[in-house]
């Protein structure tokens, strides 16, 4: 199986350790991982901020880069959701029939739409790839810490990853998983929302942080570094003494590598 790592622009630039952890983990599970260096960005920031044309340009580039692989793995629920959930909508918006809101299924017949239909079903969030494609729920990890998990909106409601990440964490040796109250509520990141509506974003994060604190966890885990950058940045500002870690980084730890 040819597995391509879609690192995402944010991880590539700011959180390379997450990418390294994915590589370590997938290799440990017997995958051959490729990193197509021509990749840049899925276009989410542009599309979601209202720069549709720029976003579509980046989407076309994404499809070119990742076209030939059996599976594309992204350590970001949000970017995976952008590709799998939003690309088809973008395609429908540009399609010749312009089915729009009256049709139950978006129809698009443009070459872009065809490429979207071909490539995007093979794009997975890390937990989906591990559980659904590799069929693994125990990745042999060891992480002796008290951890709480924030499911992040786009993993939960976009990709509908369900309890896959939690199942993976439950099988990590030494890890004590504490449920996060009101876990399904948004942390307030929302891309440019965090800057455009900084006040509301901060208010939402205040509640998220309060919930994290009630768990007594040492580590807040999520499968999206954007949300973690927001919550972690707030935790750090408050000197809360809780650190944030991407799911991949926990799953990559083993007793041998401790």
């Amino acid at each position: 199986m040819r597995v391509a790592l879609f690192i995402t622009c944010v991880n590539d630039t700011l959180f390379p350790d997450t990418g390294k952890a994915v590589v370590t983990l997938l290799r440990r599970l017997g995958c051959e991982v490729e990193f197509p260096t021509a990749q840049t960005c899925c276009g989410q920031m542009h599309v979601n901020t209202g720069y549709r044309d720029e976003g579509v340009r980046l989407a076309r580039h994404f499809l070119d880069v990742f076209g030939g692989y059996d599976a594309v793995v992204a350590p970001s629920g949000s970017c995976a959701a952008m590709v799998r959930e939003q690309y088809p909508k973008l395609a429908a918006g540009m399609g010749a029939t312009r089915a729009g809101a009256f049709a139950s299924v978006h129809q698009g017949r443009s070459p872009f739409a065809q490429e979207v239909a071909e490539v995007t079903p093979k794009v997975y969030d890390l937990s989906e790839f591990l559980v659904d494609v590799l069929g693994v729920t125990d990745v042999g990890a060891y992480f002796p810490h008290r951890v709480t998990y924030h499911p992040t909106c786009h993993s939960l409601r976009g990709l509908k990853v369900g309890d896959r990440p939690v199942t993976l964490l439950r099988n990590v040796r030494g890890l004590e998983l504490v449920p996060l109250p009101a876990a399904d509520e948004c942390c307030g990141f929302g891309g440019t929302f965090a800057v455009k509506n900084a006040g509301v974003s901060a208010a939402m994060c205040a509640d998220k942080v309060a919930n994290v604190m009630t768990t007594g966890a040492e580590v807040l885990c999520a499968a999206d570094n954007s949300c973690l950058m927001h919550i972690g940045g707030t935790l750090s500002r408050q000197r809360a003494g809780v650190r944030v870690m991407h799911l991949a980084e926990i799953l990559a730890r083993t007793e041998a590598a401790r």
Binding site: C153, R157, D184, C186, G191, F193, V200
Partner: peptide
Amino acid sequence: YASSLCGA
């Protein structure tokens, strides 16, 4: 823009 696009 009055939304974080959380989808709830």
